[in-house]
Design a protein around this nucleic acid. Sequence first.
DNA 1: TAGATTGTTAATCGATTAACAATC
DNA 2: TAGATTGTTAATCGATTAACAATC
Lengths: 209, 209
Amino acid sequence: MHQSPSPNTINRLPKYLRYLSGIYANGEDRISSFKMAEDMDLTASQIRQDLSQFGSYGAQGYGYQVPRLIHELKKILGIDNPHNVIAVGVGSIGRALLTHLNFTEHNYSVCAGFDIDPEIVGTTINGIPIYHADKLKEFLKMTPVDICILAVPASIAKETAGSIVEQGIPAIWNMTNVDLGLSHMKAIVEDLHFLDSLFALTYYLNENA
Amino acid sequence: MHQSPSPNTINRLPKYLRYLSGIYANGEDRISSFKMAEDMDLTASQIRQDLSQFGSYGAQGYGYQVPRLIHELKKILGIDNPHNVIAVGVGSIGRALLTHLNFTEHNYSVCAGFDIDPEIVGTTINGIPIYHADKLKEFLKMTPVDICILAVPASIAKETAGSIVEQGIPAIWNMTNVDLGLSHMKAIVEDLHFLDSLFALTYYLNENA
DNA sequence: TAGATTGTTAATCGATTAACAATC
DNA sequence: TAGATTGTTAATCGATTAACAATC
């Protein structure tokens, strides 16, 4: 792993994983880069290039063992290790994620949610306790947190993110439609900008029309 | 517009728009590519290259007029025109989007949601009526729909998507953690794969640790 | 006018694709 | 053994960056 893999490569890894999990569930335990490329609308070269940046997981003349490759991809992504997650902001989006996403299956443990709405502070969502945002600092003394799901209103997104980073949480999964402006800090941020995605879709829709 | 702009360029346009809307709200009505680049962690060259693929919106020695550029970007993305949207699958994710996302402000009209859960069929969410999925075909006879938000369970995502495309809806905004496999059809699909995004974040988190 | 900044052309860099020796 | 397919090196392609003439 001399030269660090490009973001494009990293973004394809979860897609490989999903594809492989799918065919493995279908009972296929062997796959070639050619078949994979055909099914995923990629080139076999690209798949082999991507994988070979992390190791040699296949065998000449045979291809890849599906369970092995699944295992290796999980290891590369780091999702074979457990991660502690909290949600800051538990409005409709935060709530939907806590309810809907299969965190446990992928080794994420969602420990708590934080909000200021008295209607939901003190309740649980999908078994996850919701505390008042005031309690975050205290909570972090007891529980090390790897990832914070940020789903607060846009108006307080930046300052909330800043404070989360200051309190030592290394990674933010950003659900707000705001650029957090943390590039100068050591924080790791992954944006999920819903509207950006919808606008791109709209562009292609109008382009074709 | 001889050579069609790359997806990378398209994906940056909404970010430009967000940035510009932000500074315009702050009262700035003039911007140079240099300042913009600094604030957005890009290069001025890239911004000018991106924009120049669609037209000449700036002036030498001056820069860009913010409101003008906002207007042009909206036009390029097609969001100056109205779009009709429906949601198929109104579980927690679908519901959160209908409640939370600012569709109206961006010229999207969310006409209806469809589900099979008797608990929610017949209700409204944020003023949007929820019909039984059986009624979709009939509904489409009356109302032309541009975009379908797909938020059904993974197990029925593919077949639902296929049927939606067959019924003439040109674009799908895919919230399911499934690859819809519509590449051979004329459908326009934009995926919002939550877990892919979380996995990428996890990769960078573990890489830094 | 002098200074600033665009739009665009050319240079560089990086990512994808093609080719193939190694080998299962 | 013959056929298949990897991992990797080389070739190509495309995207980003740099440079600069045009000009506000």
